[in-house]
Design a protein around this nucleic acid. Sequence first.
DNA 1: ATATATGAGATATTAAATATCTTATTTATC
DNA 2: GATAAATAAGATATTTAATATCTCATATAT
Lengths: 146, 146
Amino acid sequence: MRLTRAGEYAVRCMIYLSHKGVGVLVSKQEIAERADIPTHFLAKIAQDLARAHLIEIRQGPKGGYSLLKDPAEVSLLEVVEVMIGEIYLNDCVGRPETCPASKRCAVHKVWEDARDQLRETLAGVSFAQLSEKESCIPVFPVHKKG
Amino acid sequence: MRLTRAGEYAVRCMIYLSHKGVGVLVSKQEIAERADIPTHFLAKIAQDLARAHLIEIRQGPKGGYSLLKDPAEVSLLEVVEVMIGEIYLNDCVGRPETCPASKRCAVHKVWEDARDQLRETLAGVSFAQLSEKESCIPVFPVHKKG
DNA sequence: ATATATGAGATATTAAATATCTTATTTATC
DNA sequence: GATAAATAAGATATTTAATATCTCATATAT
Ligand code: SF4
Ligand code: SF4
């Protein structure tokens, strides 16, 4: 019942890029340092974000990542689910076929409602909102390159 | 972002006992079969439920488990958290010391609110309510003993 | 006393998350 | 075009957690 590190890192990456604005190219190294993400792990995460058309990856010298979509149009839910798949709290909500009772189970309904409520909450938060407010980015220590 | 099997099984066990009523002794075998829980796994789960004073365990011939508390006084949240610990969706909500930004992070606040909302939803459902409605129990196939 | 049923903890197995490594590709600059 | 800089993509470790099972101990009805 917790977000994976990959999910958390993806959010940080998107927040950093949202601060910079749409289309602004930022190097992987800079994001990794300022958002406190292991460099190689960020590479993997960026691939997922790019596949989802949230960011664009540019190779070569002066390469890096840039935001593709207006932060106002990107929700926290979207980024989280790109990384961990659709949220469903209990297995039977995402895969009803795994439990023969799912069609008539009172507990199932509770988990379904809770899932819907959670997804709505996360869908209601955009990266524009998040980057207007105080975020984590200024807090993380800047590490030495290496 | 999903419930563990142990959590799901604990809920099933509690539902089965709620159907029987407070103080009614039911054998481990019967619960394991009717609620479709691996027998040895149920033993482990029952220990946790007993430690939390939700059920009483009786050893010896004609032993088994019995409900200790009125199902109206036991919430879904309580049983789930006995098994998986306090729900917190993102690490930093349960352990703010793991992220230096937690005090001033807009994302952190979203996860906190979502966590509170989810816990409230689960706290609002009692096992009395659940056992009044249709549940999973009549659906599971009855296996042969062995 | 005996047989039955569970306790409690240890151990094994499986699966997932996390992190890193290697080889390949892209592209700015010379 | 050649070179060097930066990331891609996938493979491979490593770590951690979940899941399941096993073993020896304990309780109790008969
Ligand atoms: S018993 Fe109900 S809550 Fe549990 S897995 Fe089946 S459908 Fe879901
Ligand atoms: S950056 Fe914010 S949301 Fe992410 S771990 Fe830190 S406090 Fe939590």
